[in-house]
């Protein structure tokens, strides 16, 4: 489909009627494999939704389609009512979707500060000529940008690490840095792919606080994939469960916990009946 880009995010962002993200009938096939089939999702402004499911359910594929890394086979993805499914990843980022990755993907040989400053690139506000000729515009904008990045690091308690090489940071801080970098691009929608993977309980709690905090501070809508039920049940307002590329359940954390289909998806067929039996026994 060849449509002319009419990217005017500021105009569309004020449109309060449209949901932040609306995904309809999204499918992705890799050869004969249906990685995602008929996926639907709607995110209201300022919501925090979890996407869970067993390994290989297609969660990350959904993320990759929303961020433009994969082109969906069919279906539509709308950001504030505007179709984005055929855009390139960097353009989708400019429209206000940022993400983190399952396996941390920092710019590992660069400093912590530069990792954040790269995210400001689109808003740098000076041209190539400015940078080569070192114009006045360059120096003022560059200083502003650096200060903004430093402020950002302070929010994430990384300000003392600004000159450190990213790969030398401890794991928890790398995760935080990745979230900081994603937020520096000033997104409206943040996608977190297993943010708590590999974290110890204390770090996990810390992360949960952080997610809550940034949502309020930056007025974000957050969609997160997570395997640690503690995180999902603890902070998500709504949960969508996927299995074999399809949505099998939706609801509040409480509903999901007792949903037989979800239990079966995680623990195998018959597990729901067993757990029901177990519960009854316990109650007797």
């Amino acid at each position: 489909m060849m449509t002319v880009a009419t990217a005017a995010p500021s105009a569309t962002l004020n449109n309060n009627n449209a949901p932040v993200l609306s995904v309809q009938n999204l499918s992705k096939e890799f050869g004969g494999l249906k990685a995602v089939y008929n996926f639907n999702l709607e995110l209201a402004e300022h919501s925090l939704i979890g996407l869970i499911g067993p390994n290989g359910a297609g969660k990350t594929t959904v993320f990759n389609m929303i961020t433009g890394i994969y082109v969906p086979t069919t279906g539509s993805i709308k950001l504030y009512g505007e179709e984005i499914s055929n855009l390139e990843p960097h353009k989708i980022n400019h429209l206000g979707i940022a993400r983190t990755f399952q396996n941390i993907r920092l710019f590992s040989n660069l400093t912590v500060l530069d990792n954040v400053r790269i995210a400001y690139h689109t808003h740098a506000g000076y041209s190539l000529y400015d940078s080569i000729l070192r114009s006045k515009k360059y120096s003022t904008r560059e200083r502003e940008l650096t200060e903004k990045a430093q402020d950002f690091l302070e929010v994430f308690r990384l300000e003392d690490r600004q000159t450190e090489i990213a790969k030398n940071l401890p794991y928890g801080e790398q995760r935080r840095l990745e979230i900081a970098r994603a937020l520096a691009a000033n997104p409206k929608l943040l996608l977190l792919d297993e943010p708590a993977a590999g974290m110890n309980p204390a770090e996990t709690v810390d992360l949960m606080n952080l997610i809550h905090f940034i949502r309020d501070k930056f007025n974000l809508t957050i969609l997160l994939i997570e395997h640690q039920m503690r995180v999902v049940m603890g902070i998500c307002e709504g949960i969508t469960v996927m299995d074999f590329g399809e949505v099998i359940a939706r609801g509040t954390p409480k509903d999901i916990q007792s949903n037989p289909r979800v239990i079966e998806a995680y623990l195998g067929p018959g597990a729901a009946a067993l757990s029901e039996k177990f519960k009854r026994k316990k109650n007797q």
Partner: peptide, 12 residues
């Protein structure tokens, strides 16, 4: 450093 991450950070 990382093409996929760069793309996702809005770099063409």
């Amino acid at each position: 450093e990382d093409e996929v991450a760069a793309k996702a950070m809005g770099i063409d």
